[in-house]
């Protein structure tokens, strides 16, 4: 056993590498962009030439060698703020998505196993929440709670958890109805075993794909909120907020405000390309069986 498991692992890595070699250009592009963004986000303070909200010159300075993208409306270095924003925007979106998967995922699995009144109650409540458009619901909650980073994570997380719940419940329902889960119950296994050994390993692949898509969605929602002035608050650097702050430049034909907007677009396009490839891959494998 001990000697054979690594062999299996190694072949798994080899298989993954083989898949990667066959991947289309779009997936490669997406992966490279994603890695780049992650690197920038992790090492933002080391890369950025100046501090996050340090005023370095006049407002709206032109692009120059010293300030490659010029300065913003308060005279802060655009490039540095773009770099710090990677950390802030991506971090908050990640936290919110994880929050939503934790709550929505757990509730979804519980509903699929317990069925009965628990499933009915949670499902009906979630249905009602989903009847309010997510951006509107978020706006409403934020108007009450106020826009702080923590509130953003919770509010967006809750809104998104409804979608995660739906999916997890559906996927998990399919697995729960399979004979091997019944076999485990007939053996007398307790709930934790059934959940973590029998169900979770089998619903993980679709959930990982969904995580990518939800992350995109959360990221876009937070950017939109920030753009509307209701997300991350100044002086924090955030791409959506930076677009709002410098939007007037557009009317003079200056493309600087498009840079943070483009940064958002590039990231979401990259994630979508990777997820699309992943989806194609997993559905293809299913057909093959």
């Amino acid at each position: 056993m001990e000697t054979k498991v690594p062999r299996a692992r190694r072949s798994k890595t080899a298989a993954a590498l083989r898949e990667l070699k066959k991947a289309p250009w779009s997936a490669w592009f997406g992966l490279i962009v994603l890695l780049g963004y992650t690197f920038v986000a992790l090492f933002a303070p080391l890369i950025a030439p100046s501090k996050e909200s340090e005023i370095v010159g006049d407002s709206y300075m032109e692009w120059s060698a010293l300030y490659p993208f010029g300065t913003d409306q308060l005279g802060r270095d655009m490039l540095s703020r773009m770099i710090f924003a990677a950390q802030n925007s991506m971090g908050i979106a990640l936290a919110a998505t994880m929050f939503s998967f934790l709550t929505g995922g757990i509730l979804g699995i519980m509903a699929s196993i317990l069925r009965g009144w628990f499933d009915q109650a949670v499902s009906r409540f979630i249905d009602a929440l989903m009847a309010i458009p997510s951006l509107i619901f978020a706006l409403m909650m934020l108007s009450i709670l106020g826009s702080t980073a923590i509130n953003l994570i919770i509010v967006i997380g809750v809104v998104d958890a409804t979608r995660v719940f739906r999916l997890t419940r559906a996927v998990s329902m399919n697995v729960v109805s399979l004979d091997f889960v019944e076999a485990a119950r007939l053996r007398g296994e307790k709930l934790p075993w059934v959940v973590f050994r029998e169900i979770v390993p089998n619903i993980l692949p679709p959930l990982i794909t969904e995580f990518g898509l939800r992350y995109c969605f959360v990221f876009l929602t937070i950017s939109s909120l920030s753009f509307l002035g209701l997300g991350l608050q100044p002086p924090t650097a955030d791409w959506g907020l930076m677009v709002k702050e410098n939007a007037t430049l557009i009317t003079y034909g200056d493309i600087t405000p498009l840079l943070p907007a483009g940064a958002i677009a590039l990231l979401t396009v990259a994630i979508n390309f990777v997820v699309d490839w992943f989806l194609h891959k997993t559905s293809g494998l299913r057909d093959g069986q």
């Binding site: 939109s224 677009v243 907007a261 979401t268 979508n272």
Partner: peptide, 23 residues
């Protein structure tokens, strides 16, 4: 379309504004 749906609406909006209106 995959590219379009991945973009935030305001990015699209400002792009269109820049080209069709300002330029």
């Amino acid at each position: 379309t995959l590219t379009t749906i991945s973009m935030p609406e305001f990015f699209m909006a400002y792009l269109l504004m820049l080209f069709l209106s300002v330029k």
